[in-house]
Amino acid sequence: MSVLLAAGVLVALALGIWLGAWFDRLAPALEGGRAAGPMAPLRDWAALLIRDQAETEAPDRMNRLLAPAWYLALAAIGLSVVPVAEGLALWHSPVGIVVWGSCEALIVITVFLHGWSPNAPFPLIGAYRYAAIGLPVMLPSMFVLIAAALPAESLSLIAIVDSQRDSWNLVRQPLGLPLFLVVGLTLTLRGPLDFAGGVDIAGGTSAEESGAGLFLWQVARLATLVAFSALAAAVFLGGPLGPLLPGPVWLALKTALVMALTVLAGRLIARTTPSRMLHVLWVWLLPLSFAHLAVSGMVAL
């Protein structure tokens, strides 16, 4: 039973990765660019896979090989706690949102290691910048998830989904999803919060990557996008709850919606310098998430 479920999660993850890659290639159309067809990601990946992977001088070889693997694995572990149907998740954790929080913290470490391992300046700059931003981003994330746990009286995602039968958390806690999107942008290294990669430092942590290593890193980023979106869908949009259609389909639809939102936000929000972003995170987003928690608490009482 659970092996079947695990296979299902894996297939869903693969489909989500492909969908996310397509969204990324559709997005330029918003700015008058050319949108690519659904096969474009596969072509790009094939091109990456037949290319050689260059080695840098004196790298931390083990971490260089395995950083994308940890990133992928953390996305899959995060996805495992999301209920795919009412009362059914691959991992019935009583502390689902804490598991997700741990995955977030470990993802920041993975990105740091990815930048550390090639022993090259630009990846290292990306790693340090990302560490500086990734740490404080975890605070709004935790506040938002804790706020969602208040009405459910449990840290389990199954209970959180269950508590949204009457009204979704999106309605009860309207600030939650926007704040959580900031977290998603950070975890998936996208747009305004992509301080690890980014063109300003020549690709940052993946500046030295090529071939299969780059392919795996891109896939892992998209896998994290899928996991994050599924979790956001479960926490704010009621996950598998919905009329007529079966639960997994609802979850998939909502996940795709959050993925599109994240891709859009990454595309449309302007970048700023890391030092300014640090200020924004601590001085604006943290008090905002305090307020969000307080309001959600009042509503839940």
Partner: peptide, 30 residues
Amino acid sequence: IIAAWTGLAALAAWGMQRQAGATAPLAAPF
């Protein structure tokens, strides 16, 4: 579950990546 996902991902990463021995100009950091 944790061990299975981690092991699977590590195997995939280990199996797919072949680090080509780069010559000096290519191996130097950008």
